[in-house]
Design a binder for these strands. Structure first.
Length: 258
DNA sequence: ATGGTGGCCCGGCCA
């Protein structure tokens, strides 16, 4: 079972690239973030033509998350489960092929002294509570998405460039670690324990991609039953090249539930 | 060059 995640930075602008990627990567489940679409605008038909069912949670201009599956999509749930904590269409969950899948777009946080920064920490804590309330870490589950946190120093191109900035701060990393302590494993890192500076996002500005100036902030966090069965993992840099790329590239794992 | 690039959608916000 191939499980993928991709922040597409507008599905309207990226649909052709997403269709192209699905055709050659053939994921069983693809989680999208930043569709920037209302539910009514989501191109369900384009994915149906490729053999996929879809579920989307978006309100138009900002954020927006989706799950695209060719192994079924049931028990869809949206939001963080309490009225004001979703902060704008950032979570969707569904059962796909025996795995509980969550597609998440963690708030950016903007700056350490911005009110959005503590809100980001609270959002991550609320996500952990949601798992406590709705799921069991002994079961197959994957939290896929743009976490807007680089887990370790080696997940950014140059730590000195991030002094005093979000994505690398201790509280953000602690919030991510607390989420993982529920019973989740960073599947890509488990597969590549010794490799540094493998990135999933590069700024559009300044030729960052070609200068290898990026961050690994797109993660697939899985329960141990999936982690132990993961046979392959890849950050597909090809999708960051060419015409009109997203600033993120897809990450996927191959796993199974026995 | 006190910015940069790209997406939203048309002046400014957001990443």
């Amino acid at each position: 079972m191939r499980i993928a995640t991709w922040n597409v930075n507008s599905l309207t602008a990226r649909l052709g690239r997403v269709e192209e990627w699905i055709r050659y990567a053939r994921p069983d489940v693809l989680c999208l973030q930043e569709t920037k679409q209302a539910d009514a605008a989501f191109p369900h038909g384009a994915f149906a033509a490729l053999g996929y069912e879809t579920a989307h949670h978006g309100d138009g201009r900002w954020n927006g998350v989706a799950i695209i599956s060719r192994v079924g999509i049931d028990n869809v749930a949206t939001g963080l489960g309490s009225a004001d904590d979703d902060q704008g269409t950032r979570v969707i969950a569904a059962d796909c092929g025996g795995v509980r899948i969550l597609s998440v777009y963690v708030p950016n946080g903007r700056a350490l002294d911005d009110p959005h920064y503590p809100a980001k920490l609270a959002w991550l804590a609320r996500l952990r509570e949601l798992l406590d309330e709705t799921s069991d870490p002994s079961q197959p589950l994957a939290v896929c998405g743009d976490f807007n946190v680089a887990p370790e120093d080696r997940d950014v191109w140059d730590l000195s460039q991030f002094e005093g900035m979000t994505h690398v701060s201790q509280p953000e990393r602690a919030a991510l670690a607390d989420l993982e302590s529920w019973g989740l494993v960073d599947a890509f890192r488990r597969r590549y324990p010794d490799d540094d500076k493998l990135f999933s996002w590069w700024d559009y500005r300044g030729g960052s991609f070609h200068r290898h100036r990026g961050m690994r902030i797109d993660l697939i966090l899985v329960t141990e039953v999936l982690a132990g069965n993961t046979s392959y993992a890849l950050i597909d840099r090809q999708a960051r090249k060419g015409e009109k790329p997203s600033d993120h590239t897809p990450v996927f794992i191959d796993t199974s539930i026995d």
